[in-house]
Design a binder for these strands. Structure first.
Length: 490
RNA sequence: GGCGGCGUAGCCAAGUGGCUAAGGCGACGGUCUGCAAAACCGUUAUUCCCCGGUUCGAAUCCGGGCGCCGCCUCCA
């Protein structure tokens, strides 16, 4: 199956053909480790996590690199403010990052390089640029001469004159042209520094990604990703530096994810309107967050609200409930071998084709929203089969439900959802509801018994009273042929 | 101001020239139930921001409006 990817460089969807047959190198800009990650970071992480999973499943041998920026102005400022070293701050925040990602089920990249561990590579890349006349030293800094690189602006669609209007030289900078950007920054007193041919200093932000991506993936590689806000200037500068140094195309496909917004505005540290991953996960299941993040195409803006997470939670519950019910049927002893009705066979046949449908959707520029739609269709299919299985039990349902569940789980894998045991998921929700209701299990069971006695005596008033008061506490009662069941208000 | 994107049901959202405009959340009616809940079935956009054009045919292409958002400074 051909894979189509929207390439920011070309501003259109195009067929993806890897540089080396069957192999893909992908580099994604990671975080600057100075603060907790918010939902915007989660989106980028989850989107590329899913993309990498899909590429691997499609048979590609993927090398996935995601960096940590562990030295820059924000890190220095923050560590000064907190009175700790930059490395203490960075270690702490990378620890937080891993906590969040592990909770979210975002897999580690194959290589997770840090800028400070690649100073020699960075220096040699800068030297190459100086040698080729694209960079110059000034006052202990080294700058890239934007005007010497003719293709500058090709990614973000800007020309130099426009850029010049907004560009300026800040105090303390030594650049010759306002358009130029720093490759190396001379150390100010008290700042961390490394020795270099230009004296003590540290790398600029953009150069680390060029140096590290080319080190691990080669001077030309397939996919470079990141948030849309990185397209300019970060990625534009990466292209300029890398291509000026090598004379070769740097990246073949640029992939940018859209922002998470809140009330229609971009969520960002500077606007202060962000919600951290940690905060979200205290209230919602990690898979509900993944479902929310994947519910819209990765390039579009995605608006966060508590309601949207509640919706995602309801949708997730629906899936787990169906899978749980299916597992119950699979385990229940049934002797009858009634033949299966036609519509059950149709549902099962649809579910058999699920993985292929999901793959087709994903191969079209990673259309997760469409793919998830197919998964929900399949869940409805399972519920249809269950409906029939409850009405007219037959041992034949066991196999068909087992198969259907397996296919759904298989298809859901690349999204990192439905990874829990359905029984455990529901149990967890139920216990949480019980706890927040303030009742003990014993008290709840006593109430259920009392209600059932009332029902036997047709004392509906008392029975409903008990049910209503439990409902107010978030516990639902369900009278089934096999007795009264209680559950969280799913 | 320059560049880019978006506007599909009550809400979220897929669909980029032609089969019944996916799916989720919600609402309403039915089946089930003592009544409920869950699940299933049905209803919920004769129409895709507005106006004009191209075409046998447009949500989808083109032109013009209106509205929203992003980038142009650190940002996933």
């Amino acid at each position: 199956m051909s894979l189509f990817i929207y390439n920011t460089l070309k501003r259109k969807k195009e067929e993806f053909v890897p540089l080396h047959d069957g192999k893909i190198g992908i580099y994604v800009c990671g975080i600057t480790a100075y603060d907790r990650c918010h939902i915007g970071h989660a989106r980028s992480a989850v989107v590329f996590d899913v993309i990498v999973r899909f590429l691997r499943k499609s048979g590609f041998d993927v090398t996935f690199v995601r960096n940590f920026t562990d030295i820059d102005d924000k890190i220095i400022n923050r560590s000064n403010k907190e009175g700790i070293s930059t490395s203490e701050l960075v270690e702490r925040e990378i620890g937080h990052f891993y906590q969040d990602m592990d909770a979210l089920g975002v897999k580690r990249a194959d290589i997770e390089p840090r800028a400070t561990e690649h100073i020699p590579e960075i220096i040699s890349l800068i030297e190459r640029l100086v040698d080729r006349g694209y960079a110059y030293e000034a006052g202990g800094d080294v700058y890239f001469s934007v005007r010497k690189f003719p293709n500058y602006g090709k990614l973000s669609g800007r020309d130099l004159e426009q850029l010049l209007a907004g560009a300026r030289i800040m105090p303390g900078e030594h650049k010759v042209d306002p358009l130029d950007f720093a490759l190396w920054k001379g150390a100010k007193p008290g700042e961390p520094y490394w020795e270099s041919p230009w004296g003590k200093g540290r790398p600029g932000w953009h150069i680390e990604c060029s140096a590290m991506s080319m080190k691990y993936l080669g001077e030309t590689f397939d996919i470079h990703g990141g948030g849309l806000d990185l397209a300019f200037p970060h990625h534009e500068n990466e292209i300029a530096q890398s291509e000026a140094a090598t004379g070769k195309q740097f990246v073949r496909y640029w992939v940018h994810n859209g922002f998470v917004t809140i009330k229609g505005e971009k969520m960002s540290k500077s606007l202060g309107n962000f919600i951290t991953i940690k905060d979200i996960l205290e209230q919602y299941h990690p898979e509900a967050l993944r479902l929310f993040l994947l519910s819209k195409h990765y390039r579009s803006p995605l608006d966060y609200s508590p309601e949207s997470l509640n919706e995602a939670t309801s949708a997730l519950d629906r899936c787990y409930k169906a899978l749980f019910e299916a597992a119950q049927i699979v385990e229940a002893p049934v002797k009858k071998q009634r033949p299966l009705p036609e519509h059950v066979k149709e549902s099962a046949a649809f579910i058999k084709g699920l993985e292929e449908k999901v793959d087709v959707a994903m191969a079209d520029d990673f259309n997760t929203a469409k793919a998830l739609g197919h998964i929900f269709d399949a869940i409805r299919g399972v519920n249809r089969i269950l409906e029939e299985a409850r009405r007219k039990p037959s041992a034949l349902y066991k196999e068909i439900l087992k198969d259907s569940s397996r296919q759904i789980l298989q298809a859901a894998k690349i999204f990192g959802i439905l990874t829990e045991d359905p029984g455990a998921y529901i149990e967890k929700r139920n216990l949480a509801a019980l706890e927040s209701s303030g009742l003990s299990l014993k008290e709840l069971e006593t109430l259920i018994e009392e209600r059932n006695n009332a029902r036997k005596e047709k004392n509906w008033e008392r029975a409903d009273e008990i049910r209503d008061s439990l409902a107010q506490k978030g516990i639902l009662l369900k009278d089934t042929p096999t007795g009264t069941k209680w559950s969280a208000d799913l």
